[in-house]
Design a protein around this nucleic acid. Structure first.
Lengths: 192, 192
DNA sequence: CCCGTCACGTAGACACCGTCTACCAAGGCA
DNA sequence: TGCCTTGGTAGACGGTGTCTACGTGACGGG
């Protein structure tokens, strides 16, 4: 956003986001992105020294999108911390399933291990919201620890459910009970 | 095991297992495996029609190894279900971190989505053990559901901790508190 | 006006990848 | 002996990411 939104750099990211959401993560080759952007395969190198850095830039858009969806769904508050956490969980899993290609890209091993993604800047804000909500839902607990365990649980559900492992193993057909079980487990059963 | 353990087929898998544990998942190219096995790059095709099928065979070894470690650590019982679940969780995470390359291979998106892996046969036995233990630790709960949520939690911890996200987010330096938090959450706090 | 500089993209080479196909050498069998 | 199957070789093909040399047009100073 800070750099010119016109120009090839922004267009490459745009094309990549489009490509990964519509066709999946396996078509995100450097040359294909360049083709769709209408430039030669060497052009991206002017802005992204390596393929991984272009992919990281695209993945960062994914984290930004997820964060935007979360803050938009959470609104300006009013609901209880527990209800807000339920909302957050649903947004997270909805994103993982409807934007499966992008979600896969966001958590690719080689990107994360390269450090080019800048996970601290991309995912920490949303995690901060999570910690805050957990702290208010369970004031007696170590909020960061519980939030970390809960995030891991959401991520695990997203992954395992995404490729059908949990359907096979549990025979379930809907992921909501799993989400509710995770929330109940980490936050205590919901009283009503 | 049923087919000849000598012969190229078995040797290719052996070389692949060796390669992924010592050098990581990104060196598991078809041609590199063939080179290390001392054959031409076309030879594997006689036994594995595609690269993915060879990788799947290697990954199945990983699931078998994980299962063996689990049953060996669990022994013939005696401990309480809760203690056995703690053991199981430690084995799972230890495997994920010490055999990081293999663990990464086992949960590669393209392998899982291709269906060549046969996740039902590979991971269901161990999941059955998990369901059984959960059922005895929490007789009142839906064992399959809780076991699924717990498995997802373990998997999420393995992944997020593996590439440092949770260290960054929570500031923790040891994953055991996270594991304990997950077990406490899904099984109820341990009385002592 | 003209020339140097520089940003920006092109084009081709390189090594490597997975797949496919034609070939070949050895062994068993009629 | 002749033939067919088995198991592996060797090379081609199109694709990939990276690197390097080369245009090419705009801009500013003499």
């Amino acid at each position: 956003m800070s750099e010119a939104d016109t120009g090839l750099r922004a267009r490459l990211i745009e094309v990549g986001v489009d490509l990964v959401t519509t066709e999946g993560a396996q078509v995100l080759t450097l040359r294909e992105i360049a083709r769709r952007a209408g430039v030669s395969h060497g052009a991206p190198r002017r802005y992204f020294p390596t393929h991984q850095e272009l992919l990281s830039a695209i993945a960062r858009r994914g984290f930004a999108d997820l964060g935007a969806r979360a803050t938009e769904a959470l609104g300006d508050g009013g609901a209880s911390p527990r209800d807000r956490l339920t909302t957050l969980g649903r947004v997270y899993l909805d994103f993982a399933f409807t934007q499966a290609g992008m979600y896969e890209l966001m958590f690719r091993h080689d990107l994360l291990e390269s450090g080019k993604l800048g996970l601290r800047e991309t995912s920490l804000p949303l995690f901060g919201v999570l910690v805050d909500l957990v702290g208010r839902a369970r004031p007696e607990a170590d909020a960061a620890l519980v939030a970390g365990a809960l995030w891991a649980n959401l991520h695990g559900i997203a992954q395992l459910w995404g490729w059908g492992s949990l359907q096979l193993a549990t025979g379930a057909t809907d992921f909501v009970p799993l989400l509710d079980a995770a929330l109940d487990a980490h936050l205590g059963p919901e009283e009503r």
